[in-house]
Design a protein around this nucleic acid. Structure first.
Lengths: 113, 113
DNA sequence: AACTCATATTCCATTATGGCTATATAGCCA
DNA sequence: TGGCTATATAGCCATAATGGAATATGAGTT
C-alpha cells in the first residue's frame, strides 16, 4: 500500500484532523488530545496509531507521558500530490510539463501514485 | 459526515488517485478509466461513485457514454485544509493568525473541521 | 426487433474501521 | 513497596469498504 494511501486515509476523519490541527500548535500529550475529542482514551490511542502509521506523528516518551509531535513531511507530500496531479486543469503550462514527465513511466498507472 | 472526510477518503486509494490524475488531463469515458487500472469495470464504476459522492467528479451522458469530468473545487478545499490547519508549524505569523480565529469557536473541535 | 456496446446495479465474501469496556504496563511519588 | 496516573493493548461488536461474477439497463446500429 502506498504511503499516500495511509496519509489521505488518516486525513479522512474529523477526529484525526482535529488532532493534527492541535498538534500543529505544538507537541502535546495523549490526554490533552483525549480532552479535545468526545471519545474515550483507547479510541484516541487508536487514532494516534493510524496517524503514526501514516508517518504524520511521532511519539517520544517523556517521564510517564508520551509526547506527541506532528511530522509535517507526509502532509507536504499529500499537498504536493494534489497540486501535481489534480491541478493540471488550471495551468496548461504546468499541464504540459507533467504530461511530459508521465511519458517516461507507464502502466499500471496506480503504481506511480 | 464532513465533506472533507469524503474527499480525503476518496484520495486514500491509488486507483482513485490514478483516475483523478487521468481526469486532470481532460474528461474521458468510464471504459477509458477501466483501461488504466487492473480492475474490472464494475469495480471502477464503484470507485467512480466514491469520487462522485465526494464531489470530485461529475458524470454527464453523451450518447451511450457517460463522460466523466473532474471537479477541482473539493481538491482545492482539501489543499486548503492542509495548508490552513497543518502548516501552522512553518509560519509563526500564520500560526498566530489561526490561533486568534480559533479563539472564537470552541469544543468539540471536530465539528469545526 | 435483434444485437451490441457502455455502464450501472445486485449479491456475495473478505477485510478494514471505529467505538466501547476491561485490562495490562510502566513511570512517578509517598 | 504500594498506589496513582498516563497510556497501550485486547476483545468485542456494528458498520463500511473493497473486489469479483452475474445481471440489468439503456443507447446506438442494422
Amino acid at each position: 500500500m502506498s504511503n499516500l494511501d495511509l496519509v489521505f486515509g488518516a486525513l479522512a476523519d474529523g477526529t484525526r484532523r482535529a488532532m493534527l490541527a492541535r498538534l500543529g500548535e505544538g507537541e502535546t500529550t495523549v490526554n490533552a488530545l483525549v480532552a479535545l475529542t468526545r471519545h474515550k482514551q483507547p479510541t484516541v490511542s487508536k487514532h494516534l496509531k493510524v496517524l503514526e502509521r501514516a508517518g504524520l506523528v511521532m511519539r517520544t516518551p517523556k517521564a510517564q507521558y508520551r509526547m506527541v509531535q506532528l511530522n509535517p513531511v507526509p502532509l507536504q507530500e499529500a499537498e504536493l500530490w494534489i497540486k501535481r496531479y489534480a491541478s493540471l486543469y488550471t495551468d496548461s503550462f504546468d499541464r504540459l510539463d507533467h504530461l511530459l514527465q508521465d511519458e517516461r513511466q507507464n502502466s499500471p498507472i496506480e503504481e506511480q501514485l
